[in-house]
């Protein structure tokens, strides 16, 4: 529960005190960032083409949508919920957005629709979780089936092609930087500040850490749960915009296991599945780390078929570290 500790004034040694606090609060995030840098340095030495601007751009902007989706998932896991339907949701939102784009409607409508629909669909999950009391793992499992099946039933598996060039957001640039990269950085920073500074954001950690206590201090827990699901849905919509506008066509299926990739990013980024801790920065960095590992395997001539095994080991080690740290803290705190 490092995020809940009260800031102590380290007046005697402001520099080291501040450094120590950053290390304590963002130790996990720094570790993931360090892992990325080491990976870039090592693989870049073996094969310089790995760190070429072209490869880095394609790695980072091609996977920015996972980082964006992981922001919402982080909030969901912080309040001790889970959403298995996010992959199917992104598939549905991509088709909604693409259909509007080719219908001749103004392009901003095609961009706004997935964000609004994402929030609306995800709120339904939130209401079922918060007010009907069905566990989120089950509700989202049912939602996943409904969204996946519904998508293919409605579209018949047909792809959407001939997307107008003005719609292809992921191919645009801001100040010479690829749009997905900019979005990833801006959204992650904004969400990180919001979760750290706002009363709403901070209340999420309390809900995840101890829902009873949160209720006792007057936090409307049920309404917050619905709100977090809605926000998560909106982020899924934003992720859709980056995902669906990469190519000229939109498939009516979702990448298999996308929900697990997104959850994994959040977990490796340091979000404790036990609720109450974790930051969106860690989740976004973890998404970057995966993308870099996937690309690095190709550049050092290791079959990419081993990628998933590597990610599995990474998840287990991360969670092991989290469990061990919690144990140590409990022992230290409880004499």
């Amino acid at each position: 529960m490092t995020d809940m500790t009260i800031d102590r004034p380290d007046a005697g040694a402001p520099m080291t005190g501040a450094l120590r606090r950053v290390l304590r609060e963002y130790g996990h995030e720094l570790l993931v960032a360090l892992a990325i840098l080491v990976l870039l340095a090592v693989v870049g030495t073996i094969n310089p083409r790995f760190v070429s601007a072209r490869n880095m751009t394609s790695v980072f902007s091609g996977n920015a949508y996972i980082a964006v989706a992981a922001i919402g998932m982080t909030m969901i896991i912080v309040i001790r919920q889970i959403d298995l339907s996010v992959g199917a949701l992104i598939g549905v939102l991509a088709t909604i957005s693409g259909t509007i784009a080719v219908s001749g409607a103004p392009v901003w409508v095609a961009w706004a629709a997935p964000v609004i629909c994402g929030a609306a669909i995800s709120s339904v999950t939130g209401v079922l979780v918060a007010y009907a009391g069905i566990p989120s793992i089950v509700v989202s499992l049912g939602m996943m089936a409904i969204l996946q099946g519904g998508l293919i039933s409605v579209t018949g598996g047909a792809w959407i092609s001939d997307l107008p060039p003005a719609f292809l957001l992921a191919k645009m640039k801001v100040l010479g930087l690829p749009m997905p990269l900019v979005w990833g950085v801006v959204l992650t920073s904004a969400a990180a500040v919001w979760m750290r500074m706002s009363a709403f954001g901070r209340s999420l950690y309390l809900i995840g850490g101890n829902a009873e206590a949160a209720r006792a201090v007057g936090i409307p827990v049920r309404r917050r749960i619905v709100a977090v699901f809605a926000i998560h849905g909106a982020f899924a919509g934003l992720a859709t915009l980056l995902f669906a506008t990469q190519l000229q066509v939109i498939q009516s299926t979702t990448p298999a296991n996308l929900e697990l990739v997104i959850i994994t990013a959040a977990v490796i980024g340091g979000v404790s599945i036990l609720g109450g801790t974790g930051t969106v920065i860690g989740a976004s960095l973890a998404a970057v780390l995966f993308a870099a590992i996937g690309s690095a395997l190709i550049f050092v001539n290791v079959s990419a078929y081993w990628l998933r095994a590597l990610i599995g080991v990474l998840i287990l080690l991360t969670v092991l570290a989290d469990v061990m740290r919690r144990r140590r803290e409990t022992r230290a705190g409880g004499h």
Binding site: I82, A309, V319
Partner: peptide, 29 residues
């Protein structure tokens, strides 16, 4: 890993989901 390290089963088996599938892919090529 669930008993000895007290890992939540959801996450422990999410990790081995990736690990075992990865081994299957790596071995079968």
């Amino acid at each position: 890993i669930i008993v000895r390290f007290g890992m939540p089963p959801l996450i422990a088996t999410l990790g081995t989901l990736a690990l075992y599938r990865g081994l299957a892919e790596g071995i079968s090529q």
